[in-house]
Each structure stands twice: as C-alpha cells, then as structure tokens.
Simulated scan of single mutants.
Amino acid sequence: MSHCAARCATRSATRLLNLTRALSTEARGQKIERIATELLDLNSFERHDFTVLWRLKMGLHRYGAPVAGMTMPSVGAAARAEAGAAAVAEKMAFDLKLEKYDAAAKIKIIKEVRSFTDLGLKEAKDLVEKVPCVLKKGLTKEEANPIMEKLKELGAAVVLE
C-alpha cells in the first residue's frame, strides 16, 4: 500500500471513529434529555420517592441527614410545603405522651397505664415517673381518644404526637 493510500485509509478510519463518537455522544445527549423530561413530568410525590431512591442508590442515606442540592430544582417552596401539609394530614399513627400528672392520682394513673400496655407494676411506675414520656406508640386517633379521656379524668395531661 502506498503512503498516500495508507494516509487516506487512516483519515477515513479517523473520520469514522469521530462520527461514531459523535453519534454515541448524541445518543447519550438524547438519553439525558429523555430522563430529564421524564423527571420533570413527575408529580411532587413521585419526585419525593425518586429523591429517596436516588439517595439510597448513591449511599447518601446514612443517619437520615439531608443532603444539600438533592431535591429537584423545579419543585418550589410552595409545592414542598403543600406536600408536607398533605403528609401531616395523612398521619394515621400517633404516639400518646404523658406530659404531667396530679401527684395525688399517681397510683390511679399507673393502674390505667398498666391496663392499656403490657407493662408490669414496676415498669409502669418507672414509666409514669419519667414524665414527660411516651406511653404508647402507633395508636390511631380512635384507639387513643378513650385512653386520653380516662387519663385526663384522673388528672393527667396527655397529648398525641
């Protein structure tokens, strides 16, 4: 093969390689564009789910620390506040917290705490004495209301969290 023919073959191969790179770069650009469009089409709940999944996949979920810049840029403060309000409205499980009680009713309150928990006398007494404390976790409002009413009648201040 002559020097000129070899040079032309090299140029052709270089052009072909550059064309292949340009096509793969263009395909990557189209892929990125498609992903960005799909992300922008998500509603706020789906965006939240995506960011949680992204954090888990990237290993950024340690200690539940929020990572700066991980929220979608198109989600405004109003949308995040709306999503937070919806999450609060949807809360189904509450914790029953004893904040304070009348010292004269301590024994009655301990007996009442034993009636709706699986605690023994000593454990219930220790729990009541650690005021403020959570008496029971994961209650619905329907389950918690009768307990709250009974404890309030006995002279305790209780709240749902």
Rank of each mutant, 00 (worst) to 15 (best):
L127G: 03
A36Q: 05
A157E: 12
D118I: 10
K108G: 11
A65P: 01
E38C: 10
K130S: 10
A124N: 02
I110F: 13
S2K: 15
A81M: 13
A156F: 15
E82C: 11
K31G: 11
C133P: 02
V159D: 06
A156H: 12
L127V: 03
C133V: 15
K106N: 10
S115M: 02
K130N: 04
T14S: 12
A104H: 13
D41M: 15
Q30V: 03
R55A: 14
M70K: 07
F116D: 00
A78G: 07
S2G: 14
A156K: 06
K130W: 08
I110K: 01
E82T: 08
E129V: 03
L127Y: 12
K137G: 01
M148P: 10
E99L: 15
T14C: 10
S12V: 01
L53S: 09
G64Y: 15
T71F: 05
G69W: 09
T25D: 13
K136D: 00
H3C: 05
I147L: 13
G69T: 00
S44Y: 04
D41P: 01
T37I: 08
T140Q: 06
A5K: 15
C133Y: 00
L16F: 03
L56A: 06
E142A: 15
K125C: 04
A93I: 06
A93R: 14
F45A: 13
L56R: 13
F50V: 01
F50M: 03
E123R: 11
C4A: 08
A79M: 11
C4I: 10
A83N: 05
A157W: 12
V113K: 01
L151Q: 06
L17T: 08
R7N: 06
V128C: 13
E143K: 15
K130G: 02
P73C: 03
G138A: 12
T20E: 09
E142S: 15
P66Y: 06
A5T: 04
E149A: 15
L60P: 02
L96G: 02
K108M: 07
E112I: 07
E46T: 03
L98Y: 03
M58R: 15
K152V: 05
G69F: 07
T71L: 09
K137A: 06
E143H: 14
E123W: 04
A87H: 09
V113W: 04
G155E: 04
L60G: 03
E38K: 14
E112M: 14
A89E: 06
T51F: 15
P132W: 05
V131Q: 12
E99F: 08
K150S: 09
N18F: 11
M58P: 00
E33K: 14
G120I: 05
R15L: 13
I32R: 11
K97L: 08
K125N: 07
A83S: 06
E33D: 10
N43Y: 15
V52H: 12
T51A: 12
I110W: 01
L16D: 09
A78N: 08
K130F: 14
V67P: 04
A22L: 15
L53D: 04
L42N: 03
I110M: 04
H3W: 09
K100E: 06
F50A: 02
T71G: 14
D95V: 01
L135Q: 02
G76K: 13
F50H: 12
M148E: 07
L23N: 04
L16Y: 06
V52Y: 11
I147N: 00
P146G: 11
R7C: 02
